[in-house]
Design a protein around this nucleic acid. Structure first.
Lengths: 348, 348
DNA sequence: GTTAGCACTCTTGTCGGATGAGTGCTAAGC
DNA sequence: GCTTAGCACTCATCCGACAAGAGTGCTAAC
């Protein structure tokens, strides 16, 4: 048995109908609503075939048909029509992103927010990995009597700093010397490289005073550097899931939220996905807790190289066409924004 | 009619029982379980009086009694026994906070996390207001060819910075001059003051090149300064509410989460609460959406002056004794931590 | 190959009765 | 006069029965 043209048309109608109604689709509805010129009985025969082929399932004998994960996959790959965004929607994205380009993190958060509002799903975004960012300079600046500010600047404009209280007083000269030494030692190296170097020892041979200063600053330097590697995860629109029939019982909603809340794991899932627009449907997801969800992610670029991700998660029954269009437009827009403005960034 | 000793004992038993069981308390249960040497019938009479006095309510004729907000208030003020934390719990708090004192914000987040885990409620924490923080210095540092780093340091060690791409190249001398001028102009002033000054104009009279540099930096200076005023709000343990019988229907859970999600409003509620351990029960809360909730907050201090807040929110039926003990111990511990380590802080 | 007709299945909603927890009242007991 | 046993009464909840409705699968006719 193979997928005839008519079977495909029926499958498409079922998927589309189910996506918008969340109710199993019956043969009569299909025949009436989608005017395909064949009777319910014929459709029933076809549906029976489609079920045999694994594209439909049956919650129980006398319910309509529900698309399987496999059907969604086919729908996404072949049947779905591209959905052109309305002018207002495009404008909304463009204007909202343009208005807030000063701080990279804020912009990403903003984008996630837009995404969740426009899709009525839960969205998320992660900032790029920084492992390969190269250090530009390290600065230790005076703050007050025995407080200094440690500041680390990476080549892509990412900055991070910490205020440290020292055990005793310091001289500005010592700070300048330390800053120069550190910059000389680390400039051009990647953050990961510096973190794996045996740093403390490399200062042992210096003059005593300098050694003491460095000793109290080094541990903080390393912690700060480490924190630069952290990927920020933004999530928006959690409450949207409460409007989705699939999560209308407390236990399912709880499981969903619990999955989302394991931020660490979730970040890993996102980081490990390939570039471009990626859709994984139901059982295509490895994670046990995500067997009933679909995940759509896309990548945006900063300065053409650094890669961050943006996506939505929701029930397998989601508006794939609309969502992919929004995500695509959004990430293209982000990439363009970040190209124009260059490395504008706020250390986090 | 007045509250006799026995009425109080009965009320206390009812509140305690309802807090742990979430079920209306009947006269028989009370008589058996709390061995108070009087028969169910007597207890019924007393309960009837307590209801007339406004301390108990009746979900329906044949259900047990449920404490009113007024009863919780009395319980909290008079009847509740102080709950001493177990040694392990104290140790847990002390050790977890001590291990992570480098970054203020992380520590606060950590504390909120601990709080939600130990109380099984949803917790939150806010960082101190910075309106009155005085500026220490402003620094514009070279990054690369036409990028500079703007860095603002406040007296309490709070730092914030941004990388900016300028339209054209700059000289290091100009940056130094600008840094010195800005520091000279703003040092010792509070952030709010600087924000309300008419800043741009005050640079107009400077030399032309300097004016141009200042012109492109000033708007960013102001945005960055403004962002220093943002209060960070951390929330932890949202999923805990799904284990609470009060939120076992989707609509209630949704309303709760929606209330929480209006971060701005919620932050306002917290900021406006008085210092010390404050408990507001049910209808004592002004917010409409919080009529079924109790809110317990406490303040912690940084360097003895700056004040942040920490708290939990949950159904009026919560373990007030346990929760207040945990919060008290936690905030004391936090204040002590921040005294010892001084103004260690990471700009956010 | 398509379709009308029909029996069959299964969910959903409603209704009524049984059950049980708990109260309120009354009258007896201490 | 306070306490308590006894009893009628009230609700919420559970359960089974029943009807209605949606949808299928099969068969036979077109």
């Amino acid at each position: 048995m193979e997928l005839t043209e008519r079977k495909l048309r029926i499958l498409q109608a079922i998927v589309a109908d189910f996506i918008s109604s969340a109710e199993p689709v019956g043969s009569r509805t299909l025949s009436k609503k989608y005017g395909m010129g064949i009777s319910p009985a014929t459709i029933r025969n076809e549906m029976s075939d489609l079920e045999e082929l694994g594209y439909l399932t049956h919650p129980h004998t006398s319910a309509g048909r529900v698309p399987s994960d496999r059907a969604y996959r086919l729908y996404v790959d072949k049947l779905m029509e591209k959905c052109e965004l309305a002018k207002e929607e495009k404008q909304r994205i463009s204007s909202q992103l343009a208005s807030n380009i000063v701080e990279l993190d804020k912009t990403i958060e903003h984008a996630a927010n837009l995404l969740s509002e426009m899709t009525s799903l839960m969205s998320f975004a992660i900032t790029p990995k920084q492992e390969e960012s190269k250090l530009q300079y390290v600065n230790v600046l005076p703050a007050d009597e025995n407080t200094v500010v440690l500041m680390i600047v990476a080549e892509n404009g990412k900055i991070k700093n910490t205020a440290l209280k020292l055990a005793g007083p310091y001289t500005e000269d010592a700070l300048t010397l330390l800053s120069k030494t550190m910059t000389y030692n680390y400039r051009g190296r990647t953050i990961s490289d510096v973190l794996t170097m045996d740093i403390i020892r490399s200062f042992e041979t210096d003059i005593e005073a300098m050694g003491r200063l460095a000793e109290s600053i080094m541990p903080n330097f390393l912690t700060t550097l480490e924190s630069m590697l952290d990927i920020n995860l933004y999530m928006e629109g959690l409450t949207n899931i409460f409007s989705i029939p699939e999560y209308n019982n407390i236990e399912k909603a709880r499981l969903f939220i619990e999955m989302i809340n394991q931020k660490k794991n979730f970040t890993d899932v996102l980081v490990n996905r390939e570039d471009g627009v990626i859709i994984t449907i139901g059982n295509e997801n490895k994670d046990d807790l995500m067997q009933d969800c679909s995940l759509i992610t896309a990548t945006y670029h900063i300065d053409g190289t650094l890669v961050g991700k943006l996506g939505v998660i929701g029930p397998t029954r989601m508006k794939y066409d609309k969502v992919t269009s929004v995500i695509e437009f959004l990430t293209e827009n982000l990439s363009r924004t970040f190209k124009l403005t260059g490395g504008d960034d706020e250390q986090q």
